[in-house]
Design a binder for these strands. Structure first.
Lengths: 329, 329
DNA sequence: GGGGAGTTCTAAAACGTTTCAACGCAGATT
DNA sequence: AATCTGCGTTGAAACGTTTTAGAACTCCCC
């Protein structure tokens, strides 16, 4: 098997194992000539470092974990891309785990990450889950919250202001002449859904907001919400969906029933995923700096890992941006 | 820090470290009473096993790698779900890595997986890349190809017949009365794109197939392809897109130009992603058993890992299925 | 009460790296 | 010529598990 370790490399290059290790980890400490010799040996023997042994002895790995709620949602895919790019710049590997909306799966994934002794974890928590994260931190695993503001000052987080986002969305609908507005959302236990509604209500200043709460946030649920709205009668003249997947389903449901968008009902989504611009009636949406979100989160985490002394915890809050397209014209 | 290891647990429970290890790995070898005592100690101390130490000593990990081409494509998301479900059933963790279409990123990811000493790798190769995979196998890392038939009998693979898929798609268009058909595809160096074209040509029996080759396979590229078709004049009466992302972009591009789908041009995609059913003109597509693909691939891999003696290599080929929707009615 | 067969547990040796004190050796400084 | 400095290298200990041979017990039968 892979019987070629640092030891064999050392022998082949005529140096001690310690020197090979130095070539690997602190090449500047080794003279150019021996370094070249060792590197040649590594190449010739096809040596691949044993990460477990390295982690075991060094006490830490060059790995971070990323736990997302739904890898099927393009929003998280973009976040992931940002994280991976920055991590690989810095020489870290990313362990990606998907909780698929299940609390228990999230717990299990975090346990795996803890067993792997990752250096830190980026997580979009599925709900307020302080205990399991605190347990990680107790073990010396740094944690940065993604798309979720930290409540504590000793915790980094990167988020986007969802209240402002909700407010912007509904203000836009109002300025387009809408007056009877519906909010189609996922579970209101999800902070993002709740905050976006808060923002919507703020824009409405006391006028009523009809809320349709669905258990999931995919196109199917959006279409069902459309059917529900249609069957209940008393149609709204504008619909605000808590994400674009819901909005795309809503769009399809409305068009199927012969409702014209935006003429009969204006429609706005959230996240500005790629498909939002590509749908037949292109979707007005609230854009978030998704890729940046991941990238900055990773930056904070790796700073915390690499410079534990000087690291200053930050709670970063981005602002969302209105993207107007056909569905509200 | 995490100063609590197997040793502390042993002390706390009044047994030897070896016994704790047995409780963890071969609980049936330990008497019920001591097992209970050890398990209590584990819980009380909050012990988390150090995966690196375990891997180092045992010589293998409970981890497999999954390397996909584009995690942003819902097709791969579904495959991933299948893999993760089966792996976690079997007590394995999955290291997910995304090559984002880049050959060098794929290489780098495979190196990371090799360093982690994963038990095996599931990979959708970005092209015919025998060398790096052979190197993995030389190291004792099992490899199963996903969505790519193996050319060698000593290699497992799971794929879907793309030639049949292409043939089915174009036959369907022909039976709908189309005669001038265009094929919009990603790079023809990608086996899937090439095979689907082969199938299309087979259905055409020598009649010409106009091919538009784009460098990427996302909605943006699809829309550009539409613009290209429109600007070149001499419109086809049906378009077959090599995947649904291209088809959705094509749909939008056509509608924007006032072309009616399916009345002026019929349109068919490939993969049957969720968004295909949810688009404004719902998309006829070729469905693949995506989730199954991942699940069966994982099953083959873990069988190879856990029963190296009795394992029989298999090349499994699924058949695709035509899903008719509005875009070809 | 001696001895074989099970059962349950222990002790110590690995696994492949990293780390660190110590060493040798060149050139610079007294 | 003796001493100091600093660089480059070495050797061995350590990281936290798993694994193996075998020790310690219990039970049972002659």
């Amino acid at each position: 098997m892979s019987a070629v370790g640092i030891r064999q490399v050392a022998e082949h290059a005529g140096v001690s194992p310690g020197t090979v290790s130095n070539v690997l980890n602190r090449p500047e400490k080794v003279s150019a000539s021996t370094r070249a010799r060792v590197e040649a040996a590594i190449r010739e023997l096809g040596f691949v470092r044993h990460a477990s042994a390295s982690t075991l002895r060094a006490g830490h790995s060059k790995t971070i974990g990323l736990s997302v709620i739904d890898i099927g949602n393009p929003f998280f895919t973009d976040v992931t891309a940002g994280v991976e790019d920055l991590a690989s710049d810095r020489g870290y590997a990313v362990l990606l785990s998907n909780s698929a909306g299940s609390r228990s799966k999230e717990e299990r994934n975090l346990l795996v990450l803890a067993e792997q002794r990752v250096r830190g974890v980026l997580i979009t928590p599925s709900d307020e889950s302080p205990d399991s994260l605190d347990r990680l931190r107790d073990r010396g695993i740094n944690v940065v919250l993604v798309d979720h503001p930290a409540h504590r000052p000793d915790q980094c987080s990167v988020a986007v202001n969802d209240i402002v986002g909700g407010q912007t969305a509904v203000s836009h609908l109002l300025s387009g002449g809408a007056s009877r507005i519906a909010y189609v959302t996922g579970p209101l236990t999800i902070r993002q859904c709740m905050d976006r509604r808060l923002g919507a209500e703020r824009a409405l200043r006391g006028r009523p907001l009809r809320t349709v709460e669905m258990p999931t946030m995919n196109p199917r649920a959006g279409q069902q919400a459309a059917e529900k709205l249609l069957s209940e009668g008393d149609l709204p003249d504008a619909v605000f969906c808590a994400n674009d997947l819901l909005a795309l389903g809503m769009l399809r449901g409305l068009m199927h029933a012969g409702v014209r968008v935006p003429d009969d009902i204006a429609l706005i989504g959230y996240d500005d995923i790629d498909f939002a611009a590509a749908s037949a009636v292109s979707l007005t949406s609230i854009r978030q700096p998704t890729y940046q979100l991941g990238r900055v989160a990773a930056e904070l985490l790796l700073d915390e890992c690499d410079n534990p002394g000087t690291h200053a915890h930050q709670q970063i809050m981005f602002q969302p941006e209105l993207i107007v397209r056909e569905s509200t014209r």
